[in-house]
Write a protein that binds this DNA or RNA. Structure first.
Lengths: 94, 94
DNA sequence: TCTTTATTTTCCATCATGGAAAGTAATATA
DNA sequence: TATATTACTTTCCATGATGGAAAATAAAGA
């Protein structure tokens, strides 16, 4: 059963981009996404939290050579929701 | 020079669908769109006004056998903005 | 211990969106 | 002609989304 479910959590412009940036990778750094989206820390942090609360992304803090960095990855549910949303968009716009 | 401009006026779920429903046609009836989107009169009317104010759609009242009906069509600017937005989405989601 | 780095959370203001109800304009009906 | 009906439109109101700035927090380094 293929999903083609429009998902308003994912549809929000910044969150669509966040998911799209993570999707091709296993995980992406917070700071990298922030730079790509060109948004403030607080804004990105809030969108990340929204996606995390939805169970769509997983947040991991890794400490590599003294620096703490936050890595984001799509959960299985998140990947499914993203793919489903993209499918829904394709269905809408043809 | 092709446009691939993300357009937040068009991105809103209902308006994306409104544009997508009109796009393949020269014009579509208000009531048909309302039925497809399953929204109230007032909601559709307001989204139509938003798109009209943006210069994206043209609203025409036609009176056919006694009944007034409103027909919606994309303006040239609207079609360009819609195509551009779809292109932007494709660029984002790959 | 005091900083610095990397977020996170709070505060605040604005905008978007939606439903319900009232308003409008153009007929149709009694 | 008065009233009703159809097809939206606009207003009112309430809620939720979004963003920036600034304060708060946590972990590691000097």
């Amino acid at each position: 059963m293929k999903e083609h479910q429009f998902d308003s959590i994912i549809h929000a412009p910044n969150r669509l981009q966040i998911c799209a940036l993570i999707a091709p990778n296993s995980s992406v750094e917070f700071s990298v996404i922030k730079e790509q989206l060109n948004v403030s820390d607080s804004v990105l942090s809030k969108h990340v939290k929204t996606l995390e609360d939805a169970g769509y992304i997983q947040v991991e803090k890794k400490i590599a050579n003294g620096r703490q960095r936050t890595w984001l990855s799509l959960t299985k549910a998140g990947r499914g929701a993203f793919d489903g949303h993209v499918a829904a968009l394709r269905e809408i716009v043809g």
